[in-house]
Amino acid sequence: MSETFDVTETLDVKGQSCPMPVVKTKQAIDALEEGDVLEVLATDSGSMSDIEGWAEGTDGVTLLGQADEDGLYTHYVEKTA
């Protein structure tokens, strides 16, 4: 479960609900460089499906992994373009 990635930046959206985790992830990714990895910390259980769907439907990002530990949902998104 605990894969490690070379994280460039961490975005904390704990306590925030839909659509904030996705929208803020997108904004954080926009501010990063190609090859950077964003770690997103969320408590919204919907973020598991939402960030996966967002990464799938958006050009230039790849979802490297997701983890669910005691109500903390962690997402790793790489900016690929």
Binding site: C18, P19, V22, V23, T25, K26, Q27, D50, W54, G57, T58, D59
Partner: peptide, 11 residues
């Protein structure tokens, strides 16, 4: 508003 802001996040 939720759908609009999320769709914008999809570019």
């Amino acid at each position: 508003l939720i759908l609009a802001s999320t769709a914008a996040a999809f570019d």
